[in-house]
Computed example of a mutant assay.
Amino acid sequence: MEAIKIDNETLNKAYLDYVDRHKNVSDFFSFIDFLENHKTISIQGEDKINLTANFFKINKDLIQTIQSSGFLLLYNLIESTTTSAIDSIYETLNYLEVQHQRSELEQHFINPFIFKLNEKLRKTIIERYAKSFSDKNINQILTQKECFFFPMTTKGYDKRYLFNGNIDCRLIDDIAKKQLGIQITPYKNKPYDPKHILQIKTIRNDLSHGVQAFHEASSGLALGELRQLFTSTTQLLNSLFSSIDLYLRNECYLEKIPER
């Protein structure tokens, strides 16, 4: 996989984690390619006790079960990576808010950092901030004497609840555009197929909820179809990282000041 230069330190950490995960998934798909392109497959192992050689034949049902596991790997790669990438935005904003408030206090003047942010992001943060004042959270604030004015950028934010197991291109675009003001652009003009990402989500959910058995989920796949899904996944995530890096580098999270 071609490396992407990431300027933001927090986003780069998420990207390096993605590279490691991608390598693991890529190794699995190399094994899938082998299974798809060979007949009468068996594996050999040496018994740990008596050191004798043993053989195990991999039948068609087992091959299909292994192939179906690929949907879980792909879905996990998409959700974990997208969550980490978006989380890096909030980590960056949290750091900037702390620096801003420190500077404001030194000048004996408080101008909340969120009012410097673009309208979509500001609206997202304020709505989440308001929801954080549930009865449970209010009791926690009272008993633990927590400061609830600052920081606002991450108040009520929890990356664990960004997607809740239903991520696809539509949801990613919805969060990127409506909540953050990010336009996801294909990396180096290499498009990804949203239908592939939806297929990954659908089959993953079917497997998780027992709608399909593992040997059934991949039974109708064409030769090389899983590899195409992996390619689309890679192109989607590369596009996500390059777009977020541009967003952070150009400070698109800030409100544009009209030129006079």
Rank of each mutant, 00 (worst) to 15 (best):
M1H: 09
I4F: 01
K5T: 11
N8G: 03
N8S: 05
E9I: 02
E9P: 00
L11A: 04
L11H: 00
Y15R: 01
L16T: 04
D17H: 04
D17Y: 06
V19H: 04
H22I: 01
V25N: 03
S26N: 09
D27W: 00
D27H: 05
F29T: 04
D33I: 04
F34K: 03
H38Y: 06
K39F: 04
K39W: 06
T40S: 14
T40Q: 15
T40C: 12
T40I: 10
S42C: 05
S42T: 04
K48M: 08
I49R: 05
N50R: 01
L51Y: 07
L51K: 06
T52M: 08
A53V: 07
A53M: 12
I58P: 00
I58G: 06
N59A: 05
K60P: 02
K60H: 09
D61S: 05
L62H: 09
L62D: 13
T65A: 10
I66G: 07
Q67T: 06
L73E: 07
L74V: 06
L74I: 06
N76G: 14
E79I: 05
T83Q: 03
S84I: 02
A85T: 08
I89E: 09
E91D: 11
E91T: 09
V98T: 11
Q99S: 07
H100F: 10
S103N: 15
E106R: 06
E106I: 08
F109D: 15
F109G: 12
I110R: 10
N111H: 12
F113A: 12
I114A: 02
E119F: 11
K120W: 01
K120P: 00
L121W: 09
K123Q: 14
S132D: 14
S134W: 04
D135R: 04
L142A: 14
T143P: 01
E146F: 06
F149L: 15
P151N: 11
T154P: 00
D158W: 03
D158P: 00
K159H: 11
L162D: 15
F163R: 01
G165L: 06
I167R: 08
C169D: 15
L171E: 15
I172M: 01
D173S: 15
I175M: 15
Q183V: 03
I184N: 14
K190D: 15
P191E: 12
P191R: 01
I197A: 15
T202Q: 12
T202V: 07
I203L: 14
Q212Y: 09
A213F: 13
A217N: 07
S218W: 10
S219A: 12
L221Y: 13
A222V: 00
Q228H: 13
Q228K: 14
Q228G: 13
S232H: 07
Q235R: 11
L236K: 03
L236R: 03
S239W: 02
S239P: 05
S243C: 02
D245Y: 00
D245S: 03
L246A: 10
L246G: 05
L248C: 08
L248T: 03
N250S: 12
E251L: 08
Y253Q: 00
L254F: 11
K256L: 12
K256Y: 13
P258L: 09
